[in-house]
Amino acid sequence: MSGVHDHHGSAEMTRRVDALVARLAHRGLVTDAAIAETIESFLTHAKPSNGFRIVARAWSDDAFRARLLDDANAAVAELGIDLSHWAPVTLRVVENTADVHNMIVCTLCSCYPIALLGPSPAWYKSAEYRARAVSEPRAVLAEFGVELPERTRIRVWDSTSEMRYLVLPRRPAGSDGLDEQRLATLVTRNGLIGTALV
């Protein structure tokens, strides 16, 4: 790069991707239609509402919750949610309690339960989060506005391409009697990463 171009600039990046696509299309490896279809299908299926449904069911059904904590892949399949990634992944659900708060990170890259939460937020992929989540999780949580009692233990799970985690938040007080659909509206994406309480 000469430095004349801002290579983070959108126009320059678009030109590079155009060149890559042309090269790969010439070899019969991709088409514009296949690229568009892949984006569309991904954005349709990989949504945080999948994760919200899982949590709402776990809060409503103790037997499901037990299965979810024991074998998350099988429990998620019960709900008809497609967990497929590029390669087989093991999903582990970790439960917040009065004594333990869980949060997830990928220190090496950006591994994330993308099928259940949709594309990951920029901060999850940032060097700051990746470096600090494991060394000073309490300070990191404070930046997200989460303050936990001193006695609460914080457990940080470092994801890999084969092993992904999802946090099961504590059911909020005052949510008794709500059905699964209503419960699902209480859950947030950050709650399932552990950077929010719910």
């Binding site: 892949t38 220190t107 949709g118 594309p119 920029a122 901060w123 700051e128 600090r132 470092d158």
Partner: peptide, 30 residues
């Protein structure tokens, strides 16, 4: 990067769209 010192505050702001630019979505799909 896990535990590496010297990193500052996390920008916790949320983007409205999963991909900031069209080219990013295309790279993902490729």
């Amino acid at each position: 990067l896990g535990g590496k010192p010297g990193f500052g505050a996390i920008d916790v702001a949320e983007a409205a769209e999963p991909f900031h630019n069209e080219w990013e979505a295309r790279v993902f799909a490729i």
